[in-house]
Design a protein around this nucleic acid. Structure first.
Lengths: 144, 144
DNA sequence: CCTAGTTCCTCTAGCGACTAGAGGAGCAAG
DNA sequence: CTTGCTCCTCTAGTCGCTAGAGGAACTAGG
């Protein structure tokens, strides 16, 4: 398991961009790898796995702090996974809320676009609804 | 239509926070209002309407730049509303994409949480799926 | 008229999660 | 040995705010 990958390789294999990898190192999400004589980062298979983990978690919308915790958990396989479970559950709730609010929003936008008679701005449904909150179904409808 | 509202009044009436109102002024989304002798901003009814418009549009997830365009359109009621329509349609597409990707994500998270046997990290579905992208249905599933 | 409390002012800096660009050094192939 | 790619560090910018410092100006009560 020697360090055999350059940062570019790591980027290609993990799908995380080069500057982002360096950024992850800077914020302590990824350990600083050994360097070659010329001062270049050289990654091993473990790093690539870690990067893939991070990328997947980011894709799933987990925040960096949550990922930090998940990574710590992964490093101690004997611990109870209750914490990981809690993080995932928590995130599921967030996602569900976000879906609900976006769905309401979609209705609103669809009504807006549909009602538009494609005439002049003066009689434009889109502008009208935006101007008059009272006209819309989106009262206190949470945040996207 | 005199300037009769303080920035605090404007904030209360529009639901936009005081520093945010000043920020909108700074970025040119809201015109700089006249000041009182003591140097305080004094807003009129027009400003309040504009603020409400902005707030509503932000609530609906429109970006500041889109709102800038929409406001310009609102100021010229004789123009065709095609542009406003396009912006709204565009945003609708974005929202629909976001919903689709979040829905896929929800499935993924639900499977993760369900599969978790609440034992040790070593056999935790949550960690496992995160570590191994191949195990999950979320291939190239766009961004949340 | 004085004071206490609130609201306002400007200014700078910070958030999250990157992204972009400058300016320079290392390295592999022809 | 030169060309062109990758890599290095560093600073600054993105978006849409938010937080805090330090100070001035109103408002109500005594």
């Amino acid at each position: 398991m020697k360090g055999i990958y350059t940062i570019g390789d790591a980027a290609r294999q993990s799908g995380v961009k080069v500057p982002t990898i360096r950024y992850y190192e800077e914020i302590g999400l990824l350990p600083a790898p050994p360097r070659t004589e010329g001062g270049r980062r050289s990654y091993g298979a473990t790093d690539l796995r870690r990067l893939a983990f991070i990328r997947h978690a980011r894709e799933l919308g987990f925040e960096i702090d949550a990922i930090r915790t998940l990574l710590q958990l992964q490093d101690e396989p004997d611990q109870s996974c209750a914490a990981a479970d809690a993080i995932a559950r928590d995130h599921l709730v967030t996602v569900e809320r976000r879906i609900a609010s976006l769905t309401a929003l979609r209705e609103e936008l669809a009504r807006m676009v549909e009602g538009c008679s494609h005439g002049h701005v003066a009689s434009c449904r889109v502008i009208e609804i935006l101007a008059d909150h009272g006209e819309c179904a989106h009262h206190e409808g949470a945040r996207a």
